[in-house]
Simulated assay, not measured.
Amino acid sequence: MKELISIVVPVYNIERYIEQCVLSICDQTYKNIEIMLIDDGSTDRSGNICDRLAGQDQRIKVIHKKHGGNATARRDGVNSAKGKYIGFVDGDDWIEPNMYESLYNFAVENDAQMVTSAGYREYPGVRGKNILRDGLPQGLYDMTDADNLLIKNIFPTGFAKKYYLNGAIWNKLYEKNIINEVINDMEDNFTLFEDNVLNIGAIAKARRIYIQHNIYYHHRERTDSITYRSDMHSFEYMTKAYFYFQKIINESKYKKLWQKQLDEYIICSVFTCLQTFLGDKYIVSKHVFPMNLIPAGSKVVIYGAGVVGKGYKTWVDETGFCKVVKWVDKSVSGKNNGIHGVEPVESIPFVDFDYIVIAVKNKNTA
Rank of each mutant, 00 (worst) to 15 (best):
C21L: 04
V307D: 14
F193M: 12
V108N: 12
G55C: 12
K61P: 03
D352E: 15
I49Q: 04
E175C: 15
K247M: 00
C268F: 13
Y355K: 00
I203S: 12
I154V: 03
Y312H: 13
T116S: 09
I95L: 01
S225F: 04
C26I: 08
K82A: 14
Q275T: 09
V89W: 07
G128N: 06
L262Y: 05
I358A: 11
V62E: 07
T43F: 14
Q259P: 01
Y12P: 04
F106E: 01
I5Y: 03
E181F: 10
K326W: 08
I211E: 06
D57P: 09
V301I: 11
I131E: 06
G135W: 03
T29E: 15
I294W: 08
Q138D: 15
L278S: 11
A359K: 07
K255G: 04
A204L: 13
Y123K: 03
K286N: 07
G201F: 05
K253W: 02
G311I: 09
M232I: 10
M114K: 14
D76M: 06
K84D: 15
W94C: 08
S46K: 09
W258Q: 14
I33S: 03
H218Q: 11
N362G: 06
D134N: 15
G135E: 08
N98Q: 03
H218S: 13
V197P: 09
Y210P: 06
I267C: 08
I18F: 13
G320L: 10
K205G: 10
D93I: 01
Q275G: 13
V284P: 03
L173K: 04
E221G: 02
P10L: 06
A202F: 03
T365D: 15
Y141C: 13
Q20H: 07
T314P: 00
N166R: 13
C26G: 00
N364K: 15
I267R: 14
A204T: 11
N177C: 13
D40K: 07
M99K: 01
D44C: 10
I179H: 10
F106L: 14
R127P: 02
Y237D: 14
Y17G: 00
D40T: 04
I203W: 02
I226P: 01
E122D: 12
T29S: 10
K255P: 10
K66S: 13
V301R: 09
D231Y: 00
F155Y: 09
M232C: 10
L274V: 11
S252E: 09
Q275L: 03
H67A: 15
G91C: 03
K31T: 07
V360E: 05
Y120K: 03
N79Q: 10
I203V: 06
H67L: 01
I248D: 00
D147C: 07
I267M: 15
M186R: 13
E101F: 02
Y244P: 07
E122C: 07
W315Y: 14
H219W: 03
N336L: 05
S225A: 15
H233D: 10
V89R: 00
Y303M: 02
Q259K: 10
M291K: 08
L4M: 15
D224I: 13
